[in-house]
Write a protein that binds this DNA or RNA. Structure first.
Lengths: 196, 196
DNA sequence: GTGATTACTGAATCGTGATTCAAAAATAAA
DNA sequence: TTTATTTTTGAATCACGATTCAGTAATCAC
């Protein structure tokens, strides 16, 4: 019997994130991913069904993890709705700060890929958004947030804003500090641009 | 001499937008675009250099046009900065309301495609964003908008929010009316979620 | 009508890179 | 050391669809 050496599955997945971020999913070559992971091309197919499967696993890992963390946060009775919103923003920024390539892959590939197929990572992603939506509802009920707003719309609004800024940052890390972006998002989300 | 019948270039471009929206750029087949435009596959190559060229022309038309309209708007001395922001939001919504497929193609393909190549549609797109940025700066100088915000960040923030909502709407037109989305964006942009 | 010119066609070609698989290598058990 | 079992390899295969181009059709000028 022979034991698998190291953790090739993880190596391949990490290499895939980098290559997908660099070249885009469609132009990314399996051979390049294999090379970056220091395995043979064929080994990729030992661990993953095909190229799509790589992307699906990347997103599944991401959102499964994010959902778990968000649940901890949103169930924390000590926090106001406003603090929870800040917490969610921090959650997202922390993950993507640690892994800018993942931010790029998420922003560039997830929508496109989710459209046709019906993969289970979408469940986790949707649940993540649903959980965030609950926080906003709670804030409205408590009177913290304006009842004029539509929670469904807000969910796409804030998430789109964050995504776009992350993408911009990941593509030009020098142009803005992530911390400044994070603070501005928190401010804008709550107060908008109007002078108070 | 033979004269070109109809406007095949326009037909092909419109068909391409639809097919790219439906299938995504990479899975879209030239033969399907040709069929939808009622021309032969080869005719696509009479009017366009290659598949990429189709996408580039789509974006160029879009942003050249948008920039023109935005310039008219932003130079209108009768409007406050706040009214101009509303105007920009209307501008974007009007175009994509008329052509939801274009909204999908924009959201799904533009980032991805812009990354590698250096095409001239990017100039128009950047100028459009720059022009919007000017309006915000003007609003800050006039004291209409909070001086706490970073205009660069706001530009990506608002544009990301709009993009994401348009994409959601274009994928599920039934779920929300575009008018409601538009109103919420205007409200959120200016006031945020906090109860006033 | 004829000839000249340009538009249009779509089947055949061709490049690319995902995927396969037979062989080699590594380890474990005997 | 030999055999059995599992992992790893990477060159060969193969499918796909973008692109080409030789041929056909349409229109014009005369």
């Amino acid at each position: 019997m022979r034991i698998k050496e190291g953790n090739k599955e993880k190596d391949i997945l990490e290499a895939a994130v980098k290559v997908f971020a660099e070249d885009g999913f469609h132009k990314a070559k399996i051979s390049k991913i294999a090379e970056k992971a220091s395995v043979a091309t064929g080994s990729v197919y030992v661990y993953f069904k095909n190229k799509d499967d790589l992307l699906i696993k990347i997103f599944k890992d991401l959102w499964e993890n994010m959902l778990g963390e968000l649940k901890l946060l949103s169930s924390n009775k000590a926090l106001s709705a406003s603090e929870k919103i800040d917490g969610i923003i921090d959650l997202i920024f922390d993950v993507f700060t640690e892994n800018p390539s993942l931010a790029i892959v998420f922003v560039n590939e997830q929508n496109n890929h989710a459209r046709t197929r019906q993969d289970d990572f979408i469940d986790y992603y949707e649940k993540f958004l649903d959980e965030g939506e609950k926080v906003v509802k709670e804030g409205i009920e408590k009177g913290e947030f304006s009842s004029a707003l539509d929670v469904k719309i807000f969910r796409y609004y804030i998430f789109g804003a964050i995504r776009n800024l992350l993408h911009h940052w990941a593509s030009n890390p020098k142009s803005l500090t992530l911390n400044k972006i994070r603070q501005n998002i928190k401010y804008l989300t709550k107060n908008g641009i109007r002078k108070v």
